[in-house]
Amino acid sequence: MTNPILEVRNVSKRFGGVEALRDVSLEVKRGSITGLIGPNGSGKSTLFNVITGFYKPDSGSVYFEGRRIDGLNPNEIYNIGIARTFQIPRLFGSLTTLENMMLSPRGQKGESLLRAPLRKAWVNEELQIANEVKNLLKEFNMDGAYRMVASSLSGGHVKMVETSKGILGRAKLILLDEPTAGVHYAVGRSLFEYISYLRKTANLTFFIIEHRIDLLFDYVDYVYVLHMGRLLSQGTPEEVASDPKVIEAYIGGA
C-alpha cells in the first residue's frame, strides 16, 4: 500500500509572538520510516504535539488513515493508533520500569473498572505484555532494569524506556522525538536496527525526529526538513543531503 497513513495539511501554530509552524503540509507513507530534521527551535516537536492532539493547530488539518483527527483529545488519538514519545521523557517517576512499560499497550482489558477485580479476565493479556516487555528489555540490554524505579534510571536508560513505551503501544504509527539524544552511539545504532526490523516484521510506520543525521539517513526512506516553522525541503536522504537550501539552513543556523 502506498497511500499515506498520516497527512498533515497546511498546519499553522503560533505561541504568542512565535510562529512555531507555518503552513506545513506533509505525508507519511504506510510502512515507511520517515525522518523529520531541522535546527533547534524549528518546530519539530510542536508538529508532533499537534499531530498527537497535545496542541490544537491554529489552522490546517491532520488526517490519519483518511480520518480527520485534529481536535480529538490526546487519549483518543493514542487509541486510534498513534503513539508518541516525548523529547524530554515523561516517565512515571515512582513506578518501576516494568510498570512504566506495561502501561503502554492500548486497549488493555484489565484497565476497565468492572473487569479489573476479575483476574481471569486479564491475566493472559497481562502475561503476554510482560513477555513483550521482557524481550524488548533484552533487546536493549537492560534486563536488570525492570524493577528499578524510573526516577533512579540513568539518562540513557530513561530515553530507551521512553522509546520502548512508544514501540510497545500497539500503535500503527509511532512518532519518536529524538530517540537517540543522550544515548551512546552504538546503542543508538542498534535502536535503529531494531526499528527497521520492526518495520519489516510488524508492519509499523515510524516518523522520527533525529539530530544524528548520519545515523538517521542510513535507515529512513524519506526526510522532511523544517526551518523556522516552515517546510524547507523534502526527499530521499540523498536528495536532502545535497539540497543547498538545507546545507545553508544548517550552517546558517549554527
Partner: peptide, 9 residues
C-alpha cells in the same frame, strides 16, 4: 494544559 473537550466526552 489545554481545554479537555468535555463536549467530546
Amino acid at each position: 494544559p489545554y481545554r479537555y473537550k468535555i463536549t467530546g466526552y
